[in-house]
Structure formats: C-alpha cells, structure tokens
C-alpha cells in the first residue's frame, strides 16, 4: 500500500486566525479516512487546501509523486482528486441527468478519460443513477430536489470525475438521522470496486467508527489524534475537544457552517 496523499508542514492563516497549524499527514492508497473536529477546527480548510480552493500559507501537498501545492482546483481535479461540498454544488437549472452528463462529459474528455471514454458516457451515467438510487429523479431540476437527494447528486458528481482520491465535506449533514447510514452505504458500495481513497468530514461518531479505517481529529487547526477509530475515539483530548463531553456538543454545532 503506497502513500497517495501527503501534507507536509501545512499552515494556513487568515489574518490573526490560524486555520491550519503545522499539519503533517500521509494517506495510504485505498484507505477510508474520517476527519472529525468541532466547528472551525480546520477540517474544511484542509480539504480546501488539498483541492486548490485555498493556497496554503506555507508547507506542501503531494499527490502520488507530484507536488500539487498551489495548483488550481481544475488542475487538481484533472489529476484525480475530486470532492463534494458541504452545501451541494449543482447545476440548479439542469436536470439530474443533465448534471451527470456535464460531469461525466468533462471527465471523459480529460486526458485521464482514455480513448474509449466518450463512448461509455451514457453507460456511466446510468451506473451512477443506479448506484446512487437517483432513478426517480432523472428529469427533475437539481435546484428543486430535496436536500438529501441534492447531497447524493453532489457526491455522484464527485464520483463522476473518476477520482483516485475522493474528499467528501460532511456528506451526511442535512440528512435525517435514519437516512445517514443508507446514504453512507450507498456511497461506499459505489466506490468499493474502484480502489478509491476516501476522506470525509463527519460529525456523527457512529458513522465515523463504522465506515473508516482511520480517523484524523482536528482541533484549532492541528491534528490532535490520528489512528484507528477505536483508539482515537477513546483519547481524552479527542473526547474533550471533539466529542465535547465536558462542554457543548460538537455534533450539534456542526449543523452550522463549518470553519
């Protein structure tokens, strides 16, 4: 198992606020990693830096054997790092199928698409619709879908980009408690066969412990714990600062905008 993604001495400051404080982490190929932490702990900042939305103040990010620090979101996506968003980023006036047509269309025209990719487009769209159970919404306008479905479509769009590394920013936020597991099952089974490395931000500790191999716990821009879920979730610091046993509930706070 090789290292697919590596952050070295990553720092990000906004004026006086430190959103990332000396982050060092290596992510193994094919692993599923959970990012936890209370509001403003630096999870989304980390994802935003990896995907090029934010430029780190210092430090570097490597993907496979390339330095991707400071590349644009487009370049990074073209290399195979795709993401979903806390607030779904869809084409609101287009139907579900058109959204996927655009997504798959772009991916299959990229250099990574391969010579036959364009012939496979329609097939790929159908597969995505099936895997994410979007069949009933095929011709509905994305802007008018219920929140849970928008979330699914947003993730399906990220998957349509044929990722090597997939970053999901709070995939289950805005989804009702009993739907969360169904959604995660769907996402994980959609990715199972493809050998994709997944990083996702999550506030629900039950979900994190069930679906991940590894947890990174963020607090004030630092990673305060890193390891197997069972171990990390037992650590005192994590229990205090992330799960919030001695203070306010981080899970509840997470309903608002992160970071």
């Amino acid at each position: 198992m090789g290292v697919v993604l590596e952050a070295r001495d990553l720092n990000k400051t906004f004026g006086a606020v430190t959103a990332a404080n000396n982050i060092n982490v290596r992510i193994d190929q094919d692993s599923v990693v959970g990012l936890i932490g209370s509001n403003g702990a630096g999870k989304t900042t980390f994802i935003n830096m990896v995907t090029g939305y934010l430029k780190p103040t210092s430090g570097s990010i490597r993907y496979l054997d390339r330095d991707i620090t400071g590349m644009s979101p487009r370049q990074i996506t073209q290399l195979g790092i795709c993401r979903s968003f806390q607030i779904p980023q869809l084409f609101g006036n287009l139907s579900v199928i058109e959204n996927l047509q655009v997504g798959v269309g772009i991916a299959s025209r990229s250099p990574r698409g391969g010579p036959d990719a364009r012939m496979q487009e329609a097939h790929e769209i159908e597969t995505l619709i099936e895997r994410f159970n979007l069949g009933g919404y095929r011709h509905h306008r994305a802007g008018l879908l219920p929140e849970g479905i928008r979330k699914l479509l947003d993730i399906a769009m990220a998957v349509a980009g044929r990722p090597q590394v997939l970053l999901l920013d709070e995939p289950t936020s805005g989804v009702s408690a009993d739907e969360k597991f169904r959604l995660m099952d769907m996402v994980m089974s959609a990715l199972k066969t493809q050998g994709v490395t997944v990083l996702f931000v999550e506030h629900d500790m039950e979900i994190v412990s069930r679906y991940t191999h590894r947890i990174l716990a963020f607090y004030e821009g630092r990673i305060i714990a890193d390891g197997e879920p069972a171990v990390v979730l037992r650590e005192t610091e994590v229990r205090r600062y992330v799960i919030g046993e001695h203070g306010h509930s981080a899970a509840a706070a997470g309903e608002n905008n992160d970071d």
């Binding site: 609101g92 058109e98 655009v102 772009i106």
Partner: peptide, 23 residues
C-alpha cells in the same frame, strides 16, 4: 453538444464546473 451544455452549467455554478476539471 457537450460544449453547449457546459454553457448552462457555467451559468448555474462555475465552481462545480472547475471542480469537475473543465476550464
């Protein structure tokens, strides 16, 4: 065509278009 659909996609959400890897 695909290029034409991209136009509507850009009107709706540029961020997503860039995050799918198109310019």
């Amino acid at each position: 065509s695909h290029q034409g659909r991209l136009a509507s996609a850009i009107r709706d959400n540029e961020l997503r278009v860039e995050y799918m890897g198109a310019s």
